[in-house]
Write a protein that binds this DNA or RNA. Structure first.
Lengths: 107, 107
DNA sequence: CGGGATCCAACCGGATACTG
DNA sequence: CAGTATCCGGTTGGATCCCG
């Protein structure tokens, strides 16, 4: 549990919902998380909801409408992940350098 | 790549090596990461070495000796992960609360 | 539209056995 | 001691079909 940090899609999905700044529908989320399959998105959203990071609101309409939104806990988590994410982005070249050296040394 | 953050064992392994503050042998690492299998530890260490987060030094002795140590990049990464880790630890009860509410509501 | 159900390939990680 | 090699069950995630 709380796999939302390590999970392949969770952080990306959360940031998409958070940046939208208003309730977001399933299909719109799927557009923005791009290559995710609908099965994985469903599973990811359920997990996030389960952990209290997003809310899920179903409207009894035809066609159905379901809206997702970030919770305070979710927003707080994103804020806490941000610094690390920025550091990684800033340091990517160092990882790549190390990787290249490693791969090259045994040629 | 740079899966070292999401990976199941990488962070734990890194922190064990870092806290040891001197070169650490394979078997000692395995003792401290407790339940890890030796296969997974080997794979984890190789990945960390590949990303430049730890060093691996092999001594031509019998029996063999291999020593691992944290690199500056590795130490820096741990420092950047620490705040998030602390926040998660501090907030675990909130996740648990959300989880309990979610599980209980559909009974 | 927002899924659920099913099938399937790929991968992960543990257990065990063997080795230089 | 520090791995490598093999097997194997469980999970992940995509693709497809169906449904209210």
């Amino acid at each position: 549990m709380v796999a939302c940090i390590a999970d392949k899609w969770s952080l990306w999905t959360m940031s998409v919902i958070a940046e939208y700044r208003r309730p977001m529908r399933f299909s719109r989320i799927m557009e923005n998380v791009a290559v995710i399959s609908q099965k994985s998105l469903t599973k990811t959203l359920r997990g996030l909801e389960r952990d209290g990071l997003i809310t899920r609101k179903v409207f009894a309409e035809v066609p159905p409408r379901v809206e997702y939104a970030i919770t305070p806990l979710g927003a707080e988590m994103l804020n806490n992940v941000a610094p690390l994410w920025l550091w990684v982005a800033k340091s990517v070249h160092r990882f790549q350098g190390a990787r290249a050296a490693f791969d090259g040394r045994s040629v």
